[in-house]
Design a protein around this nucleic acid. Structure first.
Lengths: 348, 348
DNA sequence: CCTTGCGGTAACGTTTATGTCCCGGTGTAT
DNA sequence: ATACACCGGGACATAAACGTTACCGCAAGG
């Protein structure tokens, strides 16, 4: 019914579809970069300054943003409205249909696709925002949430709104430190998400490249042990995905190890595990935390990954056996469908 | 769901609602007045010629109209699309909600409200068109359709599309001639509708102001008798409504009779019967055809009436006992709700 | 056969929107 | 303290859109 009416609408007022998208993108961009001025906005998106100016005026008059001397800021009502707009734009751009198709092809319970706008900025912030919104609604009292590290997850943590009310939730890192920058380590992210949610959290302090024979010593540490116990009891897990080579490089592996990895056919990485195209684990970093078998125990496993270049990695890692949900962007979704053999007909 | 999305849309692209209405109205007006040129259109609606020009160009490029040397004509696809647009605009303007409310207040099974555009032309053509469309879809083989006279019904007949395939339907006039001009007599209208539908029809030739004692003579005439028989078997009836005073004047009643009518409280007229505000028949023109009791026998009674000034007459005539459906325009619908005590809150 | 009315196209002056640049102010990093 | 980057608002030339008028062709009606 909705789609039917939208089709009629597109025929009678086709120009408005573009306009709606532009305003949506502007509002979205302000949301992240606030406070931001019109010139910066015009540069960020590919719109003329004048045009941005007009749209800013419109958005201000609609009460969605406030314009301060420091730049445009999103208003409270604008914040709320952005959430509504997400749904609207999805309907407009047929993203719901994309979601259904991808859900079927990947064998997942749920798929969330964020529309890609005209910002030449990365879409990862946007994925992060919507993942964060989704998580916030999902979490209930008593939940134990496990999170991985990575850039995408950092975005999730970063764009999560702050709750005033504290909730009876515990956030735990899904893995120890594995030679990453602090901002994108699972520990840091777990802590930040917990803080935003008003929840509790546990840390998993494990040194890099720990020798296997020393593992028992570490895991017998009471603090570590407690965290690991929570981890086993986690009922929600959200994690990112990396390209195999990228991750190996980022973790400064020796060159021959990387070559070895690639020879084994590794294309995707998650949790220190490297997967080949068939979805088999071909290599595992000696790390502490969740293993592939543990994922099956977790009630709801959400994977967040965006960017067309990550498509192959996503396919290698995501499996109906482990995962329940995928959050990605429109372009990547289309690429996934293409790779999976599903024809990507733009049916509008 | 639809309404929800439209609300969002109205906030993010409010200008398009006007635009959609303008284009709708133009398409609609072309449909009636074709072939019609820019200037005439600009005069008919209250839009500048330049604006009309742009919209015509748009509509032509969309393939909805064709521009001939004689003026703009609606294309086949435009015809079909107009039907879709009706539904869309209804949704947009919350007419569906209006319909539901009016249905409840009037106690009818169905209500059809046509959106009022910006043409200062009468809306009766528009009501006629939509009533005709509705009728066309409603009628099935074997149906016997009874029609009344009147200006509105003439519009219905006039704007009905011609069917190539003939249908096994019989159209009969619901009343004899009662001193009207030929074009709006039931006989004429029945014949025209039958022709458009590719159906059969019967006439009811009865002189005006026939004396009661002569009735048996007339009704014993085989042709008349046959028509009356069909009339009794009619399963669908569509009729108009007149203001009591207007109708009396049109039928050139003597002044004292009119005064008598008004003293009796007559406000509405249908089928030569005059109704007071309570819906009681206070006066009956001596005419042959359907009486109030017959209406109850007819499966589906549709009343067509538009114009705010007819609101009181509509209320007096239309009753759940006799009627199943009302077709009117937006403004009149709002007026009816107001008169019936239903608050007319514009909830958008 | 001519007038009249309505059609499209073209032209033109005016208004409005657009792209661009500059200015004064402000917060921040040096 | 100073320089810098960025802010909103204003200014202005230019381009586009608009409203209006004029013109020509065609068909209907006198």
């Amino acid at each position: 019914m909705v789609k039917y009416l939208f089709k009629i609408q597109e025929k009678i007022v086709p120009e408005m579809i573009t306009l709606a998208e532009v305003r949506y993108t502007i509002l979205r961009t302000i949301n992240f970069n606030q406070p931001v001025g019109r010139r910066t906005l015009a540069g960020l998106l590919d719109i003329s300054e004048r045009n941005v100016r007009n749209e800013l005026k419109f958005l201000e008059e609609a009460g969605l943003i406030t314009v301060t001397p420091a730049g445009a800021m999103i208003a409270d009502s604008g914040m709320n409205f952005l959430g509504e707009l997400d749904k609207y734009i999805k309907e407009l751009k047929d993203i719901n249909i994309l979601e259904e198709r991808l859900k079927r092809v990947m064998g997942l319970e749920e798929v969330l696709i964020v529309p890609v706008g005209l910002e030449h900025d990365s879409v990862e912030k946007e994925i992060g925002r919507q993942a964060a919104d989704y998580l916030r609604e999902l979490l209930k009292d008593g939940d134990i949430l496990a999170v991985s590290g990575g850039f995408t997850l950092a975005q999730v943590a970063n764009s999560m709104k702050t709750s005033d009310s504290s909730r009876n939730i515990i956030v735990v890192p899904g893995q120890g430190g594995i030679g990453e920058k602090v901002e994108i380590q699972a520990n840091t992210i777990a802590a930040e998400i917990a803080k935003k949610l008003g929840a509790d959290y546990r840390m998993l302090h494990i040194p890099d490249n720990i020798k296997k024979e020393n593992l028992p010593v570490i895991t017998s540490d009471p603090a570590v042990k407690q965290t690991l116990d929570y981890l086993k009891k986690a009922n929600i897990l959200i994690h990112g995905i990396g390209g195999a080579e990228d991750m190996a490089l980022r973790r400064s592996m020796p060159r021959e190890t990387i070559q070895h990895l690639l020879d084994l056919g590794a294309v995707g990485e998650a949790f220190g595990l490297y997967f080949n195209e068939k979805g088999e684990v071909v290599f595992a970093t000696s790390s502490v935390g969740l293993g592939p078998e543990d994922l099956k125990e977790v009630g709801r496993v959400i994977v967040v990954a965006g960017g067309v270049n990550k498509a192959r990695a996503i396919i290698s890692v995501v499996s109906p056996d482990y995962h329940d949900m995928l959050i990605t962007d429109e372009l990547t979704a289309r690429e996934l469908l293409k790779l999976k053999g599903g024809e990507v007909k733009k049916d509008r």
